[in-house]
Design a protein around this nucleic acid. Structure first.
Lengths: 329, 329
DNA sequence: GTGAAAGCGCTAACAT
DNA sequence: ATGTTAGCGCTTTCAC
């Protein structure tokens, strides 16, 4: 029964209707403390008669908890906040925070300004922080008082638990696939140099090339498609015998394919191309993209959940990345 | 100076350090009411000495405002909350809400259960609601007490202001482009039948086909790539003379291109394909996708801003959609 | 088991 | 122009 009350009900209203004190109503609603079966029944009835929903703000105020979970993204400009990857993190976090009465906030952390974290630190409404695109410098600048309520999607530290994809293993699977299918002149388009978590695939690449006695061919990238397109041309020019390009992001890989096509090279017959992420469109392109999976949503949900739960998380939680072999390699 | 205070500072602390009363400090910090230049200076100094950040929860509590902005998405299952489009809306909303101390929440509104809105209605922590994927039924179920703090991305009503892309104009531009480039057997892959805002392009299509004396060829879609792929086969089978397919989403259009390729049809020589949205990858595919722009982020930001501002919005705010002609049509 | 009372951090009358 | 006072809605000792 929705008594279209013009003013949302308060706990006081519930208590009055149930004929008990506010304290008792609170105990029943919050599910904490004692209450007789009778009282419990009365209160429950009042609650859904009134359509009562607890006010998380009031609750947070008295308990000293926060009401917002901050997603804080390091980047050179505020434009990072428009990134689809960031949006996915925010969306997944919002989904798990909502039942807890917690909202999601989105902050830009200017590159090279570690003080930007102090603001979050001093904000009592922030119950937790998910750092995205962490660097050593940033991790060191995490204020002590944030310890215990900050996690990282990317590299972590002793004080900041990390939730990340196992991109070393994913990269290894992709590179071994390339090798197994006969490729011997393999180039790699990396992520931004300043991003530590993007260096793991690079190290894996170096190790594997060294082990196989193959040449190292590295091109700097930025996760974006446009860069992939130009990188393809560069690769062809510098290494005419190239037979495979591994890009650390699907967007970049798609750009690489476009760039190869621009130059008249065939994929995969002349040059095989592989990406990383397994975006939804990866199976639709021509040729369909070979890549490694990246469960961004699950990672973000896990990070947010850890923060909401408040108990200490493992220093590092790695999510598996599996090869998805399609037509491009 | 960051006095790494272990406990975040309160207004009380600021007042004490500044040597004024809490009220004065409040006035200065909130920028409301009078304050002498001297007091203003003292308080400002205290604020950044202490690294003080106002607590939005406490502020919301006393002012009766909310601390969360809800993005509520209508759908048949909770899986809609994983949609990249929804994530983009959430991300853009979060970006504008954060400076206001407001967090974003994400709700699923089960299809055919109008009561699901009552929960939001009774939640005092919710300062506004952005409805996504609205139907007439849902709009009618919006509780009176939500009026003035609810908007729609999609169709609206007398009580619910709408913020949407002008997909009728965008579709018209695309269809005229198809016609101008010689296409005469044009099929359309629509959005979900139950989604009112997706019917506008359909009406535009019908009108233009009728005006040009061309046959109407409509295939139901769902905005997704997989459906586009199967739709392409259907189109070829039912209408062998087809020379163009317009899909109301880029994902679907990319699926259509894949399906056409599966069937051995060439794009654009045999069949031209156009989409809608202008996703970042649209320029990278082979062939590059002709489409119409869709400023989702700007729309969501405008919707959120209207809610935060609290002043009545225009009944309908339409965002322009422009033709982006590339290679596929 | 239940109620009375205090108070989380802040703003907004209301005095002064 | 500034301080005093009274709460916003809720949880939580502490008596009963």
């Amino acid at each position: 029964m929705t008594t279209a009350a013009h003013r949302p009900a308060t706990l006081e209203d519930v208590a009055r209707v149930a004929g008990v004190s506010r304290s008792t109503a609170s105990r029943v609603v919050a599910g904490t403390g004692f209450a007789s079966p009778a009282a419990r029944r009365q209160v429950t009835a009042a609650v859904d008669q009134l359509g009562y929903v607890p006010n998380p703000a009031a609750r947070a105020l008295v308990r000293g908890g926060g009401v917002r979970l901050a997603v804080a993204v390091l980047g050179t400009s505020a434009a990072v906040l428009d990134d689809p990857y960031v949006h996915q993190v925010v969306g997944a976090a919002a989904r798990v925070c909502t039942p807890a009465g917690v909202g999601v906030a989105l902050y830009w952390l200017p590159f090279g300004d570690p003080r930007s974290l102090d603001q979050l630190d001093g904000d009592r409404s922030v119950c937790g922080v998910i750092l995205v695109n962490t660097t050593e410098e940033l991790l060191e600048a995490v204020p002590r008082s944030l310890h215990g309520r900050v996690v990282s999607i990317g590299v972590g530290s002793a004080a900041v638990p990390s939730f990340d994809v196992d991109n070393a293993a994913g990269s290894e699977a992709v590179l071994r696939h390339l090798y197994a299918t006969g490729r011997r002149r393999i180039a790699m388009v990396t992520g931004p140099r300043w991003l530590p978590c993007a260096q793991r695939p690079v190290r894996t690449y170096r190790r594997l090339m060294a082990e196989a006695g193959l040449p190292e061919r590295i091109l700097p990238g930025d996760f974006r498609a446009a860069r992939g397109r130009t990188a393809a041309g560069e690769a062809l020019r510098r290494w005419p015998d190239i037979d495979a390009i591994y890009a650390i992001s699907d967007d970049t890989a798609l750009g690489v394919i476009a760039g190869l096509r621009d130059a008249g090279a065939r994929v995969p017959s002349d040059v095989a191309v592989a990406g990383f992420d397994d975006i939804p469109l990866a199976g639709m392109t021509a040729p369909a993209l070979t890549t490694a999976s990246h469960p961004v949503g699950r990672i973000a949900a896990a990070a947010a959940t850890a923060l909401l739960d408040g108990r200490p998380a493992a220093p590092v939680t790695l999510f598996p990345s599996a090869l998805v072999a399609r037509a491009s390699a």
